[in-house]
Design a protein around this nucleic acid. Structure first.
Lengths: 287, 287
DNA sequence: TGCGCTGATACCGGCCGGGTATCACAGGGC
DNA sequence: GCCCTGTGATACCCGGCCGGTATCAGCGCA
């Protein structure tokens, strides 16, 4: 009755995304007729028309849009399940923690030390990813926990534990006049004609328009600041990786940044729970 | 490669839960040999042994435990997807809101009124469920949004918006001596020998041990309090449904209760977003 | 009006899922 | 020790379904 096979969902997603049966079939590596038949069968079983085919164009119905969202989530969960299962088998008692490359050295160090000191702590493998990729790494099963930052990262659908809140600072080329100031405001650094502020990718990987360079990792940003091409606003702990050519100046009016430990809410593994407990004890109760 | 078919997951969950191939096959309505073969095939494709069969007993491996959790979630998501799709087709532009039976009349009323006043607001169908069932209704696709209460309900994995925070009150039989007091403490009401405090179901539907009656809905509770058999601690808005035989007394030291609007984080529907926006404007900014 | 494009239909073949029969092996009872 | 029982694995067969090719049926367009 309600048995949606993943094959059917895969087929439906392809058609719904292409809005074209032949192209979808090609993408799936099958011929068009079986695809038409599979979709028709899916619609028949659900008792719902998912696609309006009016002779020259294919469009999604409202119900089709709903199923598209659901199917994408299910397919992601499926590949994630396979990956997690394989990971559990190949590297038992191992926890994968993902963080942005080059952020929060000391915090991570402290967390790992505290965790290693716990009796019966499992090994932790540290993965690095590009900006804002952590949630995807969690969802697709490549990581078990992530270090993320509010309000920069999208935390919807994740369970989190706050670890550390800090101010933001502006990172400037050392020789820039503003680098000599003891503090700045957001307005001060957002309107420097010769130093357009760097742009980070949004959730979908695109960049909002603007004059500043498009950034995707910390080493690239460091390079561009040192060259005097841009300025960036980052959390205070970024001071730890500054070069001689960089200068950090406190921002008085920028919102604070909280680094959080994040994991998938339905994750019931003992290892994740243990790390979270350690982190809570070590950072939350200590503060 | 990593294509876990839902049929395989269904089979695996049956075996993992029964830890017995023949019984699992019976439960699935198929014969035992095809089931053995399907599991073996699944293990071969994943390259992982999920079950240890040592001649007399079947046990889950660590990897098998991981896959069991994942598979349960995927199967739930699958049936939910079918249900949501069918709902979207049969009652288009309709939002299902679920709340505990008999809680928060006025809040819900205000929310619905505010929502109805919005231009282009979709129809809202109000569903009632028993204590703590709201999250399940959301997850299995029977509801789109829920009214829930912190800290009573388990909100993990849900997105929420706080609507209203209120004190708690003790609901007593009107003729009880304590009913005449103007305020009480939690200690006052938790140790009345002749009025054991009512027990609510936990997440898994079981009750913690204790002398008080097991409660599963508000009318039953009201009845038992009126009969002088129990006392309950509830949020202040419960005053609205009290009978003449009831008395409500403020509790000075009980934690506050926050009523929240909750929805699934990956829900991208315009209707849900609209209701949340209305609720935020009406309750959060107004407070 | 014919051509091209697109999805639906018809039909066929091979694969795979499911069934029955049977085996291999461990325990337990006598 | 023997046999019986219970369990999962194996062997084999069959039917249905998935996928392929061929073709049709509309519609737009030149």
């Amino acid at each position: 009755m309600d048995t949606l096979e993943t094959r059917e969902l895969r087929y439906f997603v392809a058609v719904a995304e292409e809005l074209h049966f032949s192209r979808a079939a090609e993408r799936l590596g099958i011929a068009q007729p079986p695809l038409s038949r599979a979709i028709a069968q899916l619609e028949r079983r659900l008792g719902v028309t998912l696609l309006d085919r009016d002779r020259r164009s294919v469009t999604l119905t409202d119900a089709g849009q709903v199923l598209l969202d659901e199917a994408r989530a299910i397919l992601d969960a499926t590949t994630a399940a396979a990956r997690r299962t394989r990971r559990a088998a190949s590297t038992p008692n191992r926890l994968a923690l993902v963080t942005k490359a080059g952020a929060n050295h000391e915090l991570l160090r402290k967390l790992l030390d505290a965790h290693a000191a716990e009796p019966g702590a499992v090994e932790v493998e540290v993965l690095l990813c590009r900006m804002g990729e952590q949630a995807r790494m969690l969802r697709d099963g490549r990581a078990d926990v992530a270090l993320m930052q509010r309000p920069f990262d999208d935390l919807t659908g994740l369970d989190t534990e706050d670890l550390l809140t800090e101010q933001q600072v502006a990172i400037l080329p050392a020789e820039h006049p503003l680098a000599a100031r003891t503090s700045l405001t957001v307005a001060d650094v957002s309107d420097i004609p010769e130093l357009p502020v760097a742009r980070w990718p949004r959730q979908d990987g695109t960049y909002e328009p603007g004059p500043g360079p498009e950034i995707h990792d910390q080493s690239q940003l460091a390079q561009l600041i040192a060259l005097g091409h841009t300025v960036a606003v980052l959390c205070a702990s970024s001071r730890s990786w500054l070069w001689n050519a960089h200068a950090a100046v406190s921002l008085t009016d920028a919102p604070h940044v909280t680094t959080v430990l994040a994991w998938l809410p339905h994750n019931r593994s003992r290892a994740v729970a243990g790390l979270v407990r350690t982190a809570t004890r070590h950072f939350v109760s200590a503060s």
